[in-house]
Amino acid sequence: MEIFIQTLAKAIALGSIYAIMGLSFVLIFKGTQVLNFAAGAISMAGALFMSILIADRGFPFLPFTNPLAPADGETAGVALWIVHLMIALILAAILGLILERVAIRPMVGQPLFSMAVITLGLEIAIRPFNLDATAITGRSVGVPWGTESWELAGAIIPKSYVAAIIAAAIAFTGVYFFYRSRFGVAMRAVAFDQEAAMAQGINVGRVFAIAWGLGAALAALGAIFFAMAPWPPAGTVSLEIHPIWIFRVLPVIILGGLDSVAGAVAGGLLIAIFEIFAGQYLSQWTNILGPGYSTIVPYIVMLVVLLVRPYGLFGTEEIRRV
């Protein structure tokens, strides 16, 4: 029973992080029709901003230091940490805005695939800067609760898991209400038909900018919560999360449907539950399934779902015109 609870907690926590990343993809896709392959690089940059703020107490090329940051060897309190988190997210959003202005805006109206590949190019171009900053040592993101955990009916549940779940819940609520706001409606209109939206007086450029800003912030949020113990980088930004990150999330958004907010959350939870439970309960069959089989479970689930429902569980079916 403890094992079941532990596994479930881990699955939901991982699912929450997947969901945050999924929301980032969906926001950008719904607003701008771009499948953002650069999410990996952006999210890692966001986590790096966090580390620079909290561990280095300010950017090396700026003349002032961060007065809020905890002294050497101390950890920030939860409230202070959240303040830093917010600043890091804002910085990530600014990065998203810049990328959108430089690379995405000129491509408005181009085929979907060209837009997706542009982000692939961005990913490749940004990555060396990220890797460079983390090359030598792990960079701390100063998680206040470190490796602490709670006990629930004999099961040990790390605080990081709960934090990830809370973060995902807040992100989902935020995005949900955002879509119901006046601006969210504008965004949906733009996604539906750019020209018609323009004719209605909607500023399409601003919609693009907002979508990318929010998307980048969400991507950074996902990476920071994935950088906590006991997830592999354990409280630091490291080379480890980055290369694999985005390709673990792709099945999530495909499963949920590229343009569905609820789908991103459902897809994230579903994929994580399949992945973690398969890892936990099929482990005695590793000889048959092959080592590391749980890594490809998301892809198998994705393939099966797609062959039954080609636009994901919640995605909108494309109407094929001649």
Partner: peptide, 15 residues
């Protein structure tokens, strides 16, 4: 499966 969905399915193939 079409378009971007197909692209991602083929990513699955590589993995």
């Amino acid at each position: 499966v079409r378009g971007l969905y197909l692209a991602i399915v083929t990513v699955g193939l590589v993995f």
